[in-house]
């Protein structure tokens, strides 16, 4: 195997501590990826390479895992992450329509990020509030019983705030 060169990236301290704690544990790979994603919001290529080098985990193995599990992301998510539930209860109560409406409203397709990096849209499976169906969340805040007609207002809250913050 080709030896990876040291990457020009300094790993965040929390991640380094975590790697130190887990380094001798079998089966550490997935837990470390979770930590990377917690720190960076996704798994940046440089970080994956550096972790591979430091921990001695083949890069192919790391990418094999990332591509197998739905939760790991290779692309940087938007500033505002919209997740729409498509579990059974939400599907029955019109989750599909919610997704379509959001796509139309902000021009972002499922699993992509808007060009300005402002919003990203993803579909999730059951967030465990099925009685509230249809359910969506933005940056972790859960919205239940979502009506299509409420979407412009809900999304508006985020575009406004962020736009100001960005100057």
């Amino acid at each position: 195997m080709m030896m990876l060169e040291k990457q020009e990236v300094t790993l965040e301290k929390g991640l380094l501590d975590f790697m130190e704690k887990w380094k001798d544990k079998p089966g550490k790979e997935i837990m470390i990826l979770h930590k990377i994603q917690e720190v960076y919001g996704y798994v940046p290529r440089k970080v994956a390479m550096e972790v591979s080098r430091v921990m001695g985990i083949p890069l192919a193995k790391i990418y094999g895992i990332i591509t197998f599990y739905h939760l790991f992301k290779l692309q940087k998510p938007g500033k505002n992450q919209i997740s729409v539930c498509m579990g059974t209860a939400c599907y029955l109560k019109g989750g599909n329509d919610i997704i379509q409406e959001i796509e139309d409203l902000i021009g972002v397709a499922v699993n992509t990020t808007s060009e300005d990096g402002h919003f990203s849209l993803e579909v999730v499976r059951c967030v465990g509030c099925c009685g509230l169906a249809p359910v969506m969340s933005i940056n972790g805040k859960v919205y239940g019983n979502v009506q299509k007609s409420e979407l412009p207002k809900i999304l508006g809250e985020y575009s406004g705030k962020e736009a100001n913050a960005n100057g």
């Binding site: 997935i30 837990m31 979770h34 895992i65 197998f68 599990y69 739905h70 499976r125």
Partner: peptide, 8 residues
């Protein structure tokens, strides 16, 4: 604990 990562 070991965490899953979203694969049914």
């Amino acid at each position: 604990l070991r965490w899953g990562a979203g694969a049914f």
